[in-house]
Amino acid sequence: MTTILAIETSCDETAAAVVEDGRFMRSNVVFTQEELHRRFGGVVPELASREHVLGIMPAVERALETAGADWEQIDAIGVSYGPGLAGSLVVGVNAAKAMAFARGVPLVGINHLEGHVYANWLIKRDRWLGADGRRIFPEPRAPQFPLLCLVVSGGHSELVLMRQHCTYQVLGRTRDDAAGEAFDKVARILGLGYPGGPAVQRAVERLRDASGLLHVPPASQFTRPWMRGTYDFSFSGLKTAV
């Protein structure tokens, strides 16, 4: 059994987790800075970096505590090294380096996008640990190769083909904004708040009538974010149309 303490500070979340054998989550702690950045309508890099400095130790300590793990059980430290905000990454990467150095365990640098992809292998604690604290068998099946992975967030929109572990073929990606970025910008234009995804969702919910039907303008008014003949996306036209 391999137990990894993983740290992620790419953008506006200070996060730490303890994971067994790359699949079994013993803990997953995420401190979001959403509240801090909301009034600016987007992530302010300097503020994000400062918040990571304050959040990194509590996040790691809570991840270990929730997992019931002590440092002797940690076999390696994983950390996302980018892409992301340089000032934010500095905090997680240096804290992780110091931990690996101090404990004499390997440091594994992880591309942030690979992290998104491999989230699909993770199993939540209550799905592999019973109430008696014993492992539940059989464990949920792992994703099978070849597989297609759509990575969508505030920072990226990519379509990735995987034929085996750790090999990626990017079939398509956004040519301008990421999907989440488009949501943020649209929400800002419409004065709906930040972050845009949940804000737009809430606004849409208000259009639901008593029978639960949604009354939204026909989508045909908007451009499609798919670049014909490719696997690429483009969200800037959609944003302009809104």
Partner: peptide, 13 residues
């Protein structure tokens, strides 16, 4: 922030 993070890493670990 590099120095603070290194120090915190050592303190935590």
């Amino acid at each position: 922030r590099v120095g603070a993070s290194l120090g915190k890493g050592l303190a935590a670990a």
